[in-house]
């Protein structure tokens, strides 16, 4: 008996360690490419010509980053991306609060209709609307403006729905009491309910910020010059520029592009995971 249970515990230890090794290999498959990207960004053209597959650069050089800054006005693109993503997230939160409040808490004619309209928009992606929207914005001269990048996403169907769902759990008495104290509806929405909904709003902010920071499709379609061009577009263009592909320069741009998204992920990992899992 004793021998048998010892054998069982040995075999379970073997199994545990095999599993851990497999998981380590998994981590390598997912993290390896980033490490490769960062190492590649420190290489020089001659490194690439002499030993394209060498993991380490012959010496750590910042030349590729310098080339990125010389090739494109990256500061401007970073600013464009940041302003765009922040504006979209802020406007979405600002508009979703009153809309969600009306849908969750107020009795009025046409409420089901309004709710269905919001929900219907969840089903319509930008890939379906871009042609008419592009032509419409072109007609009023808004192509290549921040407005064209921000305004179409100012109202978020998902955000409105999230706020409405969260408000269903807030008791009516609380709002009635605030009304009794003489608080205006705007005060109730932004000062009383806003702070109570912080977890929902943080989820909305993270989902929205990461999505629009990363978005390639809409800025690609709505911009034709560099005035409001955003980071993903600029870095993708980096590859199309010049003769022959200079991977070290493209990877340097790629490091600058992916670092903010990864930083947000590192800082708000638990929250982001919860926000994604909650959408199921």
């Amino acid at each position: 008996m004793a021998v048998g249970s010892e054998a069982a515990s040995v075999s379970s230890a073997v199994r545990r360690w095999t599993l851990n090794l497999v998981l380590l290999a998994v981590a390598l498959v997912w993290l390896g490419p980033y490490v490769w990207m960062v190492l590649g960004s420190f290489k020089t053209l001659s490194d690439f010509l002499q030993a394209p597959l060498a993991p380490l650069p012959s010496s750590f050089q910042l030349g590729a980053y310098r080339s990125v800054f010389q090739a494109i006005p990256i500061g401007r693109y970073l600013l464009n991306s940041t302003v765009m993503a922040l504006l979209i997230a802020a406007i979405q939160i600002g508009l979703a609060l009153p809309a969600g409040y009306a849908l969750a808490k107020l009795r009025f004619v046409g409420r089901p209709m309004a709710f269905v309209t919001v929900m219907a928009c969840l089903l319509i992606p930008a890939q379906v609307t871009f042609v008419p929207v592009f032509l419409m914005l072109a007609k009023v001269g808004l192509v290549n403006t921040m407005t064209a990048l921000v305004l179409p996403f100012g109202a978020s169907a998902l955000g409105t729905f999230m706020v409405r769902q969260a408000l269903l759990y807030v008791p009516d008495e609380l709002i009635e009491a605030a009304r009794m104290d003489g608080a205006s509806e705007l005060t109730i929405i932004y000062r009383l309910l806003g702070p109570m909904l912080v977890p929902t709003l943080v989820s909305l902010f993270l989902l929205s910020f990461v999505f629009h920071w990363n978005d390639y499709f809409w800025p690609l379609v709505m911009t034709t010059d560099e005035t409001v061009r955003t980071m993903p577009l600029a870095v993708a263009l980096l590859r199309e520029q010049g003769t022959g592909v200079r991977w070290h320069i493209v990877m340097a741009g790629n490091v600058i592009l992916s670092a903010p998204a990864l930083a947000v992920f590192a800082l708000a990992q638990k929250h982001l995971l919860r926000a994604v899992a909650a959408r199921r």
Binding site: L103, A114, T117, V118, L151, A155
Partner: peptide, 17 residues
């Protein structure tokens, strides 16, 4: 309260469709 949201959604999602 709903107007800004509905106007934007109609103009940029439903109408284009």
């Amino acid at each position: 309260m709903l107007a800004p949201t509905l106007v934007l959604l109609v103009v940029f999602f439903i109408l284009p469709l």
